[in-house]
Design a protein around this nucleic acid. Structure first.
Length: 263
DNA sequence: ACCTATGTTATCGC
DNA sequence: GGCGATAACATAGG
């Protein structure tokens, strides 16, 4: 689930349902998911506080607290953030649970425990420590163009490299490249300026559309690859067969006819 | 049983 | 130093 659009939806949910509520209890059920902080320190840091702002950087959710200090959460491949009411029962995969004084709960969930959650004095510390590049929706056209033209990696590999540009993963890199009609294995530096500029616009358009659709695959435009990624359906543009191929360590979905291999 | 999966990180070879 | 491939992490589902 959690690439930039998914985390942005989490952020919006936090903004509407988690701000300015007193955190009375902190229950760390999977301490192995804590990043750089002990269970005791984490609980101590958050108990009695309220979240005053919800931010996002790449795939990381950042919740600023009223006393300074920021909760940072990353969701791995199977994580989410869920707000529960008093009567709702616990989920099997609730890994960290914040109990609000008003009875509701904020739950950091993760099936596979591949994510991390931590607390830092300033959000920037976490961003620097994780080595994250500029957010995919924050990078300027010029910055993006320079990044692409100076990379020897495949364009898909570059889009997924969190140290260069933060927020895009396997699913959305495929979608962006499909919409831009670029083969995922194309060397980034081989793209000329017009293509780089178009790719920047396409990247923003895809991410913003996904956010508008609540990052729900079924709500994406029919012209997107995402809703029928695993249905075996043909290319939504030409009807041809969608292929898969390994690029930068991941399985890329693409249409060989619409996204011809680089020569 | 075996394979795959929306992520990250360490390691190895080129 | 950059990059791709691979394994590992923990778990579910086909």
């Amino acid at each position: 689930m959690p690439e930039l659009p998914d985390v942005e939806i989490f952020r919006q949910v936090m903004e509407r349902h988690a701000l300015n509520r007193l955190v009375r209890t902190v229950d760390v059920r999977a301490p192995e998911m804590l990043d750089g902080i002990s269970k005791r320190s984490f609980e101590f840091a958050l108990q009695g506080r309220t979240f005053v702002a919800a931010r996002r950087w790449g795939k990381n959710l950042l919740l600023d607290t009223d006393q300074g200090g920021t909760l940072r959460a990353h969701f791995g491949m199977s994580g989410a953030i869920e707000v529960r009411g008093t009567g709702d029962k616990d989920g099997t995969y609730d890994r960290v649970v914040f109990g609000f004084a008003d009875g509701g709960r904020l739950c950091y969930t993760s099936t596979r425990k591949l994510g991390t959650i931590g607390f830092v004095g300033r959000a920037e510390e976490a961003i620097v420590r994780l080595g994250l590049g500029p957010d995919a929706l924050g990078i300027s056209r010029k910055e993006f163009s320079d990044l692409v033209s100076s990379s020897a990696a495949s364009i898909k590999g570059l889009l997924m490299d969190q140290e260069r540009i933060a927020g895009i993963g396997n699913i959305y890199s495929d979608e962006i490249l499909f919409q831009a009609r670029i083969h995922p294995a194309t060397r980034a530096a081989d793209l000329d300026q017009a293509v780089r500029d178009d790719l920047w616009r396409t990247m923003r358009q895809v991410l913003q559309t996904a956010i508008r659709k609540q990052a729900v695959p079924q709500r994406m435009p029919l012209s997107y690859l995402l809703p029928h990624r695993d249905t075996g359906a043909g290319c939504p543009r030409c009807g041809g067969e969608v292929k898969t191929t390994a690029v930068a360590g991941r399985n890329a979905h693409f249409c060989p006819r619409c996204q011809p291999a680089p020569t």
